[in-house]
Nucleic acid binder design. Structure first.
Length: 511
RNA sequence: GGUGGUAUCGUCUAGUGGCCCAGGACGCUGGCCUCUCACGCCGGAAACCGGGGUUCGACUCCCCGUACCACUACCA
């Protein structure tokens, strides 16, 4: 019988959650939901030196913003806790002891300095079957000597004892079977007495086993240590219940080569973090998708397609659709270069399809930020204004630039457009336009359009020049929604006022 | 250096031996629509890393080479 699907996302709180980590979390979540399984959030804080305050909260907030739900974790609780590794010391100690008793691991006293020296002395030095005989460990020392050192408080580590020349097979859902010879895997440190904490490798295996994790879904950077993990499961006697491995292709830099890193965002001008991050130590601020005006659904959609595809032409997916369609056998083996332009397009797509009223709500704080008294405008007004410009923008943050004329009359006019559309006789034409508009009883877009366009035709005026001059006075530049839609929303009085102001303030460019 | 992984348009990718002189999307680009800018619609340029096999037939299978990526800590 297949065991219940239980997956975990296990970040270490050493900083803000990276966008690659977000994708790993997302794939875990999609797989869990698709199979009616559990999604665990485990905090891997076994490196006491790298703890960053606020990082754990950041992770929670980011996942929540993106709609990646957690079933078990530090905040959610669960039957397999604690979910923070620093609180599981007793558990790890027990298994370290077991490994030692079973002869699957040994104690080593070599200092970092001694190891460094060895690495310099011997090319390709690796702590393994070939070299452990010349190191200071419980294999080369007398038991009394070892015990004496430990009781004296000498710092030591526990290393796994790797049997050389064994074929280690890692089964991966994306890559198939990967075989590695155990001679190339070294006697990795499992536990350090200095802080009484295990390293990632031990903690990870122990926790995954105890938490009954069925699938280990993580980044490809872990593939090289997967053989070690397989060996660890065997050493602990858990081979039969070993989880299925899935190593996801990496997210690569958009230019050049290599893994996408924290610094790429600032260098290339796009966020690499879901949320803005304020570094508590340096005070540096890194931009986030949320603050940039990205919609969480767009980020999720974009990320989902980076390394996975449905095999059809569909590109826009809701979270529910992703849950339904996602599968590892449609995951790419190749790292994906991060394409910011495509991400932008996804956001644009979501913005266009978003309900106008909903978008208006998101836009309101933005309005207030720009000094507009939102009480002065009805929800309907804001909603309709936003609805008219959303096809022209990519981010929520772009709305203001494109829609401000709905809320504030232009004080400046685009010089290029003036040059092209504001001639000597334009003020006169605009005066006549005012008279025409004054005579319109019903400002409904279609009606006003019929009347004004009729007037232009009857008087044999130049349509482009008149309409663009009109637009210039109302909008401040020659772009934006249909003029008569704007006029209908703003109303006759406001339109007339703006034309008058334009006549007064716009001076033709003469050269 | 060692080990592992990967290799289709600039980018994300479809393609599991004939349907492929390689399809979609982003970006770029020509046009239509049009009072402008967008949206939308219709077009265009743009790719199978190289060499050997296997086969009637290879983007697809095998081998070699090359390139790229990851790992190579008492970090995760």
């Amino acid at each position: 019988m297949d065991k219940k699907v239980r997956v975990r996302f296990a970040p270490s709180p050493t900083g803000p959650l990276h966008i690659g980590g977000v994708r790993t979390a997302l794939y875990n979540y999609l797989f869990a939901r698709q199979n009616g399984g559990d999604m665990i959030l485990r905090i891997e804080d076994t490196d006491s030196n790298r703890f960053v305050p606020g990082a754990e909260e950041y992770i929670n907030e980011a996942l929540q913003w993106l709609g990646i739900g957690i079933d078990e974790g530090v905040h959610e609780g669960g039957n397999f806790g604690p979910y923070k590794q620093s609180e599981r010391r007793d558990i790890y100690r027990k298994y370290v002891k077991q490994l030692l008793n079973d002869g699957k691991a040994y104690v080593a006293f070599d200092t970092p300095e001694e190891l460094d020296a060895k690495r310099k002395e011997i090319a390709n030095f690796q702590y393994d079957a070939k070299t452990r005989g010349m190191m200071r460990n419980s294999l080369t020392m007398l038991k009394e000597e070892v015990d004496a050192l430990i009781t004296a408080g000498e710092k030591y580590v526990v290393r796994i004892l790797i049997e050389p020349n064994q074929e280690v097979k890692v089964n991966d859902l994306i890559r198939g079977e990967v075989t590695v010879n155990s001679s190339v895997v070294d006697d990795k440190v499992l536990y350090k007495s200095a802080d009484d904490l295990p390293t990632y490798h031990l903690a990870n295996i122990v926790d995954d086993h105890l938490m009954e994790v069925s699938h280990v879904i993580r980044g490809e950077e872990w593939l090289p240590s997967a053989p070690l993990h397989v060996l660890l499961y065997e050493a602990l006697g858990w081979k039969d219940s070993m989880p299925q491995f899935v190593h996801l292709p990496l997210l690569l830099k958009p230019d050049g080569k290599g893994k996408l890193s924290k610094r790429d965002g600032d260098r290339l001008g796009f966020p690499v973090f879901p949320l803005e991050w304020h570094d508590p130590v340096s005070g540096d601020i890194s931009s986030g998708y949320r603050e940039r005006g990205y919609l969480p659904q767009a980020v999720v959609n974009f990320l989902a397609l980076l390394g996975w595809n449905p095999g059809t032409d569909q590109e826009v997916f809701s979270m529910d659709e992703l849950i339904k369609e996602f599968s590892f056998d449609r995951c790419s083996k190749k790292g994906a270069k991060f394409d910011f332009e495509k991400g932008k397009w996804f956001n644009h797509e979501y913005l266009i399809n978003m309900d106008d009223a909903e978008l208006a709500e998101i836009f309101k704080p933005e309005l207030a930020k720009h000094g507009v008294d939102t009480e002065q405008f009805t929800n309907e007004y804001i909603t309709r204004a936003v609805g008219m410009i959303k096809s022209r923008i990519s981010f929520v943050g772009d709305i203001w630039d494109n829609a401000k004329f709905f809320f504030v009359a232009p004080t400046e006019y685009n010089p290029k457009d003036i040059k092209k559309r504001w001639k000597e006789d334009t003020p006169d034409t605009m005066c006549r336009l005012i008279e025409v508009i004054k005579g319109i009883d019903d400002m409904t877009s279609a009606n006003a359009e019929e009347i004004v366009l009729g007037w232009i035709r009857d008087n044999e005026l130049h349509m482009g020049n008149v309409m663009n001059a009109f637009r210039l006075t109302v909008v401040g530049e020659c772009k934006g929604p249909h003029m008569f839609d704007i006029a209908e929303l703003m109303g006759k009085d406001e339109i007339i006022t703006r034309i008058e102001r334009g006549i007064e303030n716009i001076k033709p460019v003469t050269e």
